[in-house]
Computed example of a mutant assay.
Amino acid sequence: MRFERIFDDLEGRFAHQEREEMRAVSEDLARAERAQLSLADRLRGAGAHSLTLHLGAALRLEGTVEEVGEGWLSMREAGARQRAVVPLPAIALVQGLPTRARPAEETLRSPLGLGSVLREIARDRSVVRLETTAGGITGRIAAVGADALDVQSLPTGERGTVPGSSRVTVATASLLAITAR
């Protein structure tokens, strides 16, 4: 009888050790998988969650993510029809982001770059508000280059060119957000 209790105790310890080892391996695999996720993957997985993006010290956008491309995201602002395009490097903080993720391989859309999106906005001739690290500018995107874009500024928000409007070149790296007016 005594040997049976010893063997039962050893079997119980062995089973416990196996469970602990499996748990540790599982946690390591989960951490390794999480380490492979990018901010873009997490933003793709946000679904209909309302997020607040902090773009620098004073600029915040709140809304839901519509699309995430190669280096940018499109978001529908809360309570507005406006769509904002945000370069991913401009995002400093995100509030409300769920832990769920969706890697780029799982999306059906082609991974357009920020330049392609800016050229599409330029073709539409939409009046936009560009928020940059140097401040904001309202106007139409006139041309998009590899690392900069030209904007025909509309200082008072008119639809057409007026006295006082000028063509300004904006470095793409300084962009925080582009909002359709």
Rank of each mutant, 00 (worst) to 15 (best):
62 E>P: 00
56 G>R: 03
54 H>D: 08
111 P>E: 14
82 Q>R: 14
72 W>R: 00
99 T>M: 07
18 E>W: 07
62 E>K: 08
91 I>C: 05
54 H>R: 13
99 T>Q: 10
44 R>D: 01
86 V>G: 00
85 V>C: 03
45 G>V: 04
41 D>G: 06
37 L>A: 03
63 G>A: 08
98 P>Y: 04
34 R>H: 11
107 T>C: 10
32 A>I: 05
96 G>C: 08
42 R>L: 11
24 A>H: 09
16 H>F: 13
20 E>W: 07
20 E>A: 12
92 A>T: 10
97 L>C: 10
93 L>V: 10
82 Q>W: 09
16 H>L: 14
43 L>W: 02
79 G>Q: 10
83 R>S: 10
22 M>A: 15
38 S>W: 07
63 G>D: 07
95 Q>L: 13
98 P>W: 05
31 R>G: 06
47 G>W: 01
29 L>G: 02
81 R>Q: 12
72 W>M: 01
23 R>C: 06
94 V>I: 11
93 L>E: 13
17 Q>Y: 12
69 G>S: 08
51 L>I: 00
41 D>T: 08
92 A>N: 10
50 S>W: 09
47 G>F: 06
81 R>S: 14
44 R>S: 06
68 V>W: 05
98 P>A: 09
95 Q>F: 09
30 A>N: 07
108 L>Y: 09
91 I>P: 02
59 L>G: 00
110 S>H: 12
109 R>C: 09
65 V>A: 06
20 E>L: 13
75 M>I: 06
114 L>G: 01
106 E>C: 09
64 T>C: 12
98 P>D: 04
66 E>N: 09
54 H>S: 12
88 L>M: 03
82 Q>L: 11
31 R>Y: 06
40 A>Q: 06
15 A>F: 14
86 V>R: 00
57 A>C: 07
52 T>S: 12
98 P>N: 06
40 A>E: 08
97 L>K: 03
79 G>P: 04
41 D>S: 08
67 E>H: 14
47 G>V: 05
99 T>R: 11
48 A>D: 13
86 V>Q: 00
16 H>D: 15
49 H>W: 07
15 A>E: 14
50 S>C: 11
43 L>H: 00
57 A>W: 06
24 A>Y: 08
73 L>V: 08
106 E>W: 13
43 L>F: 01
48 A>Y: 06
73 L>K: 03
90 A>F: 01
45 G>F: 00
73 L>C: 10
46 A>S: 14
19 R>C: 07
75 M>L: 14
108 L>F: 08
80 A>I: 06
69 G>H: 02
63 G>P: 04
102 R>A: 07
